[in-house]
């Protein structure tokens, strides 16, 4: 979650029993280095770094995780295979986010420790398949563990993910409103106010769609996207800096408030540890109750 998941949120998640991630996003490598060092001071628990393959600093950031001894790397928005060898040599466990069976198989061949099968319910960069379809397909195709992502923000999603073949879940949107998440209060309020039909996918024409909460920014982007007079370059330029405007400035008009469809069932701000406890307890109770469906 670019501009969102820093050392504060990542370490709160790790301390709360999850695996916190620092999102390297489009930030420069020195920002990431500082956050990794800060996270090491804040927790002795494991944490990871998410590397966004479309970042202009991707090569430098890929090197920083090696230099700083990061143990777990997740990747998103593209193919990480050119970095796999150096990460594996450094003893890093790599968990790529995958949008299809073929990419999941490929990542397994390249030595991924697990794959994160992320359905298009999720926020940010998305693929075509839903979590419901993708997770079982990927689970059948690979022999490494599968983590489910996309649309999971409560115990029901966690329980469902296990039924679909996953052994873990990745959660983004619900942590946006964690007390330890440092995004602008306007961002949190938009998540809390969101209802079922409030997210939209922009940028399909560019081949890398992004799911975000509807606002003036997404409305204007979609208008231009479907206007044949808008060039690809112009369209790409529209998105630059929009997420930072949302996360840091809380700009309700020009900001791009990435969020998953699960924003609709995120209803309160809580400490990250409480979010994790609630989700897991609810999932456990649901899984215990599954006997009701058996004769």
């Amino acid at each position: 979650m670019a501009w969102i998941a820093d050392a504060s949120l990542a370490t709160a998640v790790s301390e709360g029993g999850g695996l916190g991630l620092i999102a390297a996003m489009n930030a420069d490598p020195e920002w990431l280095r500082t956050e990794i060092r800060l996270a090491k001071e804040l927790t002795k628990k494991p944490f990871g770094v998410n590397i966004m393959m479309k970042s202009p600093f991707v090569d430098a950031v890929a090197q920083v995780v090696v230099e700083e001894g990061v143990q777990i790397v997740t990747t998103g928005a593209g193919n990480p295979e050119r970095f796999m060898q150096s990460w594996l040599a450094a003893g890093i466990k790599v968990l790529p986010v995958v949008p299809s069976v073929a990419i999941a198989r490929r990542m397994e061949n390249y030595g991924a420790a697990a794959v994160i099968a992320e359905g298009c319910e999720s926020g940010g960069h998305i693929g075509e398949l839903t979590t419901m379809a993708l997770v079982p397909l990927v689970s059948d195709a690979v022999s490494i563990p599968v983590v489910a992502a996309g649309g999971i923000a409560d115990g029901r999603g966690v329980a469902a993910a296990f039924m679909l073949g996953a052994v873990g879940v990745q959660v983004g949107t619900r942590f946006l409103v964690a007390n330890e998440c440092t995004v602008h209060p306007n961002y949190k309020q938009k998540i809390l106010n969101a209802k079922d039909i409030d997210t939209v996918a922009t940028g399909k024409r560019l081949g890398h769609p992004v799911r975000a909460l509807k606002n003036k920014f997404t409305e204007e982007f979609l208008k231009k996207e479907y206007d044949p007079n808008t060039s690809f370059e112009e369209l790409e330029a529209l998105g630059v800096g929009a997420l930072r405007l949302a996360a840091k400035e809380g700009d309700l008009e020009q900001g791009c408030f990435i969020a998953g469809q699960s924003a609709a069932f995120v209803k309160k701000e809580q400490p990250a540890a409480q979010i994790i406890r609630e989700m897991i307890t609810e999932a456990e109770n649901l899984l215990r109750g599954t006997n009701q469906w058996l004769k």
């Binding site: 193919n79 949008p99 299809s100 069976v101 073929a102 990419i103 198989r105 490929r106 693929g127 075509e128 081949g207």
Partner: peptide, 11 residues
Amino acid sequence: LDSLDIVDLVM
């Protein structure tokens, strides 16, 4: 074919 199809094909 889009980028996902190409990976599928390459596999």
